[in-house]
Design a protein around this nucleic acid. Structure first.
Lengths: 214, 214
DNA sequence: ATGACCAGGATTGCATGCAATCACGCGGAA
DNA sequence: TTCCGCGTGATTGCATGCAATCCTGGTCAT
């Protein structure tokens, strides 16, 4: 839709999710317009779309900022992901084609390679691969309503660049979950894949916000 | 935010959810602009926002239409509601204040009054009261991510004006569910309220799309 | 010293104009 | 008759201009 606006939204999304633009940063329309080489109109449209996705926050007459999430909101977000994403994985497993299984496996193995301890380098590529990994399941699960409901809810974890906060053990656990999920998918076992996704999310939640005391 | 755009979005939302604008109807920017007494710019912004909510569908260079949902999508939407809305009710119950309980009770009883058989009149007011009833729980449940995830997913049932398709028995069941939910809320029993909400949704799904054969 | 108040500048919000794209209907060829 | 191509009208997409609002700092009174 609206090509220039869509492209602007895509660029901004990339920059926010990849951390180029920090959480909480101000997004001036004029600055974005000159930087992305379009006028303010498509920029404004892109901002309203990202606001609807929950990636940016809009205040009347006061402009846009990259969204921030309180601990309570993060807790809630994980609660929602736990209710939706394992279900999405279960739906996706029987629909995955061979080439998609190969892509998932490649993603899982590449994340495991760059995340191995001893190689203490940039974890940036993992963020992107992880996003693609989770996104592929949601995409294959297939239905638009599910994708829409999950869209806003998966952003927060990505923006918070959580991999840097993982302990080495938690990170390894997380990356092995990916590999195991591919194995479950290859076996066509939706129950297995769903269970691993659930464990994967609990592990992520524990490192990001700790275990809720309730 | 953006006062004129927000007002336009609100007006359109009302008109779509109340059925004044039919599902699938075309939404011309110029026509809406003259009708709502603003220029096309805020109209376009309103349309992008409603598109993000899933209420309208946008096609590049081809304008906007009120969204329609396939049976598969409706099925998926109920699957999502079943995973989120009972949870929202459970969260809301301990937070409901006396005045909110009174409002819920008034809504439930008014729906029951106008829906009673023998009084075969307009069911329109029920649609609005029902929307308010469900929305109040979601609002009180409190967290923004949950509300955002549910927003797009609750629209479909409203647009489809489902109450007219209910059999008299199913309609009565549904309206009594509301009353029972208020009773559960007054008792502070989140489990009870959650269970009734679940039954409420199963009942609605059965009349709208039938029981899935899986 | 502290607080209220008031320019000046900057930024957002909306309206409008023009270019780009699409829908529709007509005419011509097979 | 049917289908393809094309021109015209209508609609959307984007850029720009102006008014409205907000933020900043500086000044003045207390």
């Amino acid at each position: 839709m609206r090509p220039a606006a869509e492209q602007a939204a895509q660029s901004l999304r990339e920059e926010i999710l990849s951390g180029v633009i920090a959480s909480g940063a101000r997004l001036g329309e004029a600055e974005l317009a000159t930087r992305l080489q379009v006028s303010r109109t498509p920029i404004r449209e892109a901002l309203t779309r990202l606001a609807a996705e929950g990636l940016v926050e809009l205040q009347p007459h006061r402009g846009a900022r990259v969204a921030t999430w309180s601990t309570a909101e993060l807790r809630e977000i994980f609660e929602l992901r736990l209710r939706l994403e394992p279900y999405a994985v279960r739906l996706a497993v029987p629909k995955l084609g061979p080439e998609q299984l190969d892509e998932l496996q490649e993603l899982a193995e590449s994340m495991l390679r760059t995340g191995k301890p001893g190689r203490r380098q940039d974890l940036g590529p993992i963020v992107e691969a992880n996003r693609r990994f989770h996104g592929l399941f949601i995409e294959v699960a297939g239905t638009a309503p599910l994708a829409a409901a999950l869209r806003g809810v998966t952003h927060a974890a990505v923006v918070h660049q959580n991999f840097h906060d993982y302990t080495p053990e938690a990170l390894l656990r997380s990356l092995h979950h990916h590999v195991e999920m591919v194995a479950a998918a290859r076996a066509g076992d939706g129950d297995w894949a769903e269970a691993i996704m659930r464990a994967h999310l609990y592990n992520a939640r524990a490192t990001m916000i700790g275990v809720p005391r309730s």
